[in-house]
Amino acid sequence: MKGILLAGGNGTRLRPMTRIVNKHLLPVGKYPMIHYAIAKMAEAGIKDVLLITGKHSMGLYAEYVGSGACWGVRVAYLLQEEAGGIAQALGLAEPFVEADDKVLLLLGDNLYEDSLAEAVAAFKQREHGAHVFVKRVPDPERYGVAEVENGVITRIVEKPQEPHSDLAVTGMYLYDSNVFQIVRSLKPSARGELEITDVNNEYARLGQLTYSELRGWWTDAGTHRSLLDAGIRLLGEEEA
């Protein structure tokens, strides 16, 4: 299984800090944000990681992450020339993934407590499909929300005004290699991007989308408040 780590984006919600450096290099506790994402990949048993980012701070990524040896993984780098959505960035990784391989896609600004190792090991045994990780939240209208019937995700609705559940889809995904064919079939959304929700809904339509519910804490560290809260939490864990 290959790991794909997305660390691009403009970080508009974290300005003015992101005028200086990419948000995934901002400090969270003792380390830059990207440190935790690579550590979670390694913890899940991933050995080969492709880090995708934009032109902004590419050199700093290479300087801090290097070959990945610090985490016991091998890190390669890929430049995303311009933001085109999560699914578009995923599509760029196709040459990195062998035909019969599977991928763990991780958004670098997702910080979380749970280990993904068990879910990754189980997914390796599956022939095909996709798997998402959900978290119960008090404000699901801010996220992509999973609608579940009889233990099966029927569809994911992006930022619904009237959510049918409190299950937010987090930024960790498992896919078979068919995901690239699905990405190639997508059409841009109203905001001109290829949406990862459309990828997941295609797997749901095929009856191939499963999920796990995160039990520990999780945050999308994309705002000043969530970045601060994550740093305080992780600093406490590191000093415990």
Rank of each mutant, 00 (worst) to 15 (best):
M1D: 04
K2P: 02
L5P: 02
L6E: 08
G8S: 07
G8V: 06
G9W: 06
T12D: 10
P16S: 12
T18K: 00
I20N: 00
V21Y: 14
K23W: 12
H24Y: 08
L25K: 01
L25Q: 05
L26H: 02
G29P: 03
Y31Q: 05
Y31S: 03
M33C: 14
Y36Q: 07
I38Y: 09
M41N: 04
E43K: 13
A44K: 00
I46K: 01
D48L: 04
L50Q: 04
L51P: 13
T53W: 09
T53D: 00
L60F: 07
A62F: 00
A62I: 06
Y64T: 03
Y64C: 01
Y64M: 04
A69N: 05
C70V: 15
R74K: 07
V75G: 01
A76M: 02
L79Q: 08
Q80T: 11
A83H: 11
I86Y: 08
I86E: 13
A87N: 07
G91H: 03
A93M: 03
A93L: 09
F96T: 05
D100H: 10
L104R: 02
L104M: 08
L106V: 15
L107V: 11
L107Y: 13
N110L: 07
L111P: 08
E113G: 05
E113M: 08
E113F: 06
D114A: 05
A117D: 04
F123D: 01
Q125E: 14
Q125N: 15
R126D: 13
R142G: 08
R142I: 15
E149M: 11
G151I: 15
I153R: 01
V157N: 05
E158N: 11
E158Y: 15
E158D: 11
P160L: 10
P160F: 01
P160Q: 07
E162G: 02
S165M: 12
D166E: 09
D166M: 10
Y173T: 04
L174C: 09
D176I: 10
S177L: 02
S177Q: 10
N178C: 14
I182F: 08
R184C: 03
R184M: 03
R184F: 04
S185H: 04
L186P: 11
K187A: 05
K187Y: 00
G192I: 14
E193P: 09
L194H: 09
E195T: 14
T197Y: 07
D198L: 09
N200Q: 13
E202Y: 13
L206A: 10
L206G: 07
S212F: 15
L214C: 14
L214R: 06
R215T: 15
W217P: 03
W218M: 15
W218V: 15
T219Y: 08
T223S: 14
H224F: 15
S226N: 12
L227W: 03
D229R: 00
A230E: 00
L235V: 05
G236Y: 02
E237F: 07
E238V: 14
E238I: 14
A240M: 15
A240E: 15
A240H: 14
